[in-house]
Amino acid sequence: MTAPLPESNGKKYDLGFARWVYENVDGGDKLSMCMQCGACSGSCPIGTEMDHGPRKLFMMIRAGMKEDVLKSNTMFNCTSCYNCVVRCPRKVPVTYILQDLGRVAQRLGYAEAKETDNARFAKAFFWSTRKFGRTDERLFSAKYYLSFGVGEAIKMAKANMPVARSLMKAKRMHLGMPHKIKGVKELNAILDKAEEIEKREQGV
């Protein structure tokens, strides 16, 4: 069971944070192995998009910079390519740690975590999964665009028209009714159960 994250009481450096991450975040027990060599951030194909990158984020965790860590965009930019995990000389499961930290930030309601592109994207993706049992490229893109407001959504949709056309040509996107799977109801029951277990494990 995950222990509740201790309150920082407004402190910039929360010395209990690292320990909490070691003990509660998936793969966090291996984080103390990190020797700050930089192989992870250097291996990251989109590392330049990240505000900190994994190596620096891990140092910030150790320094107890809880707020800055949970507001970071680093977790949400991870594409799970696993380059860093393969190359890490200390076998730190970087990808797992980032993913779980992202979930922690979401759960704790950090606005930054909710507002990132990737969080919006994941939300739209999940919406489509629950609704149709699969992704409908068109509807879930629309849902994602709309999360930025109607005006912005129209702009984004227009900008992505060439992509949409190519997708349709390749039969990866279609017009008309969305294709649903047979057992949408059953799939939702599975997802509900998973959510229930997750909540129980997190002690909420």
């Binding site: 700050q36 250097g42 990158g53 190596r55």
Partner: peptide, 11 residues
């Protein structure tokens, strides 16, 4: 040679 400079965080 590719990587991240850990002092400057330059890639």
């Amino acid at each position: 040679v590719k990587g991240e400079d850990t002092v400057t965080r330059d890639v």
